[in-house]
């Protein structure tokens, strides 16, 4: 097993090199750079040249790539043009805000989707199943900013149940438990909206997985033994139905840290998604490339984790 992991990790190296070349090449092909994108009306041609040489944008692309790659090897992603601080620091500042809502959303949406999926599979084509299916497709097709705004309108402005936006109450200066409580209160709406949007697809996965398992011979055997339906479903069927979902779980890893560009904006949540988007738009290459590489590493790791988990969970699969 450990041999397998080491081999997979080593295989990641050429993959990452390939990704870095492609990502860098794309960034070079995209028109404009930070200086043109900021559109400063006072920028003189001389100053623009000075800045390009300070930022190293005047070097030939191949040289720029190797400088970037070399720095990356020693963990230096460079300084963000906009933030005037190291990219790693920028990511570290914002990524955890994205992580906490993504993590809570992940737990909630998987729990709810698993339960709902199992029940609608168990009672396939029942009234409950039909209602759930309808709801699921309805939620999947809603644009996130729309329900986000709607939620703010009804729950925050009209009913005054939750704060409208942001992550903390301005000027509260709370610490410890009060701080956690404050953040939790602000999290409810964005997490609820994100969960609603994610449950849709997941429920379908669980339902299909469950339907497949329920038809297996061993389930019939279990029922024939006279086991309680609950035991059959949750002990025998559910665990097997989870197997395909494990693959999915690995892919969630980059999503946990990637941020939600649209919803972060709607709820003024200080996450990394907005920061990443701004770096793309403003051609803040160090931040844009650095964060893309960060996500690439997470995606590859997520892949590896799901393969390993699969091997652990399903004895039929042997990792070599």
């Amino acid at each position: 097993m450990s041999q397998y992991i080491i081999r997979r990790l080593l295989q990641m190296i050429p993959t990452l090199i390939g990704i870095s070349i492609i990502v860098f090449a794309i960034s070079q092909m995209v028109p404009g750079d930070y200086i043109t994108a900021t559109q400063n009306p006072n920028m003189t041609a001389e100053r623009a040249e000075q800045l390009r040489s300070l930022y190293g944008l005047d070097k030939p692309p191949v040289q720029q790539y190797f400088i970037w790659a070399k720095n990356m090897l020693v963990g230096n992603l460079g300084d963000s043009f906009q933030h005037k601080m190291p990219v790693t620091e920028v990511i570290n500042t914002y990524v955890w805000n994205s992580f906490i809502i993504a993590f809570v959303t992940l737990i909630l949406s998987w729990t709810i989707a698993a339960l709902v999926g199992v029940f609608s599979a168990q009672f396939q084509y029942s009234f409950f199943d039909k209602v759930v299916t309808l709801l699921v497709f309805l939620l999947m097709s809603l644009p996130s900013f729309f329900i986000g705004l709607l939620a703010i309108k009804y729950f925050a402005l009209d009913m005054k149940l939750f704060p409208t936006a942001g992550m903390t109450t301005a000027g509260l200066n709370a610490s410890g438990f009060d701080y956690i409580k404050d953040v939790a209160k602000h999290m409810i709406l964005p997490v609820a909206v994100m969960t609603t949007l994610q449950i849709g697809g997941l429920t379908r996965y669980f339902r299909t997985g469950m339907l497949e398992v329920i038809r297996q011979d061993y389930i019939r055997t279990a029922r024939a033994k006279g086991l309680k339906e609950r035991t059959v479903i949750f002990k025998h069927a559910f665990r097997n139905a989870l197997l395909p979902a494990i693959t999915l779980l690995g892919f969630e890893l980059p999503g946990l840290f990637g941020g939600a560009m649209i919803l972060e904006r709607v709820f003024a949540w200080p996450g990394i998604g907005q920061i990443y988007l701004a770096s793309l738009n403003l051609r803040d290459y160090p931040l844009m490339l650095g964060f893309t590489m960060f996500l690439a590493v997470l995606t590859l790791l997520g892949n590896l984790i799901s393969d390993i988990l699969y091997g652990v969970a399903d004895p039929r699969i042997r990792l070599k």
Partner: peptide
Amino acid sequence: SLMLVTLMAFGSILAAC
């Protein structure tokens, strides 16, 4: 997986332009 990652990278940058 390589394709997925590169596609993702592509996607995000193309989305920007």
